[in-house]
Nucleic acid binder design. Sequence first.
DNA 1: CGTGGCATGTAATCGGTTACATGATTTA
DNA 2: TAAATCATGTAACCGATTACATGCCACG
Lengths: 181, 181
Amino acid sequence: MSLAHGILGLLNYGDMSGYDLAKAFNSSLRFFWHAQNSQIYLTLDKLEKQGLITHNLVIQTGRPNKKVYSITEAGKDEFFSWLAGNTDTKYEIKSTFLMRIFFAGNISKEQSISMLKRFIKDCRSFLQEMDTVPAYIEEYAQIAPDNAPLYWQFTADFGRRYVNMCIDWAENCIRKLGEPL
Amino acid sequence: MSLAHGILGLLNYGDMSGYDLAKAFNSSLRFFWHAQNSQIYLTLDKLEKQGLITHNLVIQTGRPNKKVYSITEAGKDEFFSWLAGNTDTKYEIKSTFLMRIFFAGNISKEQSISMLKRFIKDCRSFLQEMDTVPAYIEEYAQIAPDNAPLYWQFTADFGRRYVNMCIDWAENCIRKLGEPL
DNA sequence: CGTGGCATGTAATCGGTTACATGATTTA
DNA sequence: TAAATCATGTAACCGATTACATGCCACG
């Protein structure tokens, strides 16, 4: 449901191809929505059938042709009513990793500590990847109006805080399990 | 995929009905996995077809009859191999709320501040609900072995830290938007 | 007399994942 | 010459959501 609105929101900033959208989702929007490219193309078809977007085919030489999508008036209406809509917040986390921790009483303390350490390592490498994000934001800032990049940074900041929280939590777990860091 | 393993893990602690499982998911496991009861019954059927669990019908008077499920040997094998399996951590957050924030450059500053305040309010009420969690954990601790409750507390702690992080983040956003708290 | 707890499900739909398929061009 | 980038999709499947359906009993 929200992938569709994310696409509408991006197209509201400017025309893009499916490929461009996939790039945006896997860079600027990755902190709160991961999207497979196949899913993006599927959603694009659906939105077009609903009349919320249109495309025109751009013939390229030396590169594959592409479909450049634009948002329609109906699409803008839909997007803005979604944006202003009800904001009931649900606790949304689904994590197989935490499920494993929940059942870690069944495995040895050493095993669970190594799981937690692995988790910390993954978090740290994610943090490093994240350092390249400001560049993406500046890149897209060219097409977006005024204060939009501020909000983009808010979501990136959320990502950073989340991952740091994860690291703190995991270190605390290890400490409670009685092993020095 | 993980709902199934969560069910196997719970049944590994002791026999339960679908109703009991639903209660467990909506109390102790809520910090990392929310499950609809319909989905639980569906998954129960699937697991039984796969021979990972069995049930026997318990006739009750004064109450609806119930199916009490038990894990089989095959189920235990599956559960333990999942538990010890590969632990690649993905950044898993999907949030419509953050998507709205991402696009908040399109609405007024006042509107986005009120969205953030609403978010903080929801987080705080979630924190309050969470205070009743230790009780649940003690209740289930009776059937679970030794150090299991410690890990349960880890996941509950994750939930608390997450929600607190959300509050801090949102307050910081409001501050950056130039309004006093 | 109404609410909440106990208890189990079906049907329709959807959103998403995984794997597969293709193929030219640019860059290291 | 191999890898990365550009570019778009299909097919199969699955996990999950939403809405609906039923009905008794205990408690306040």
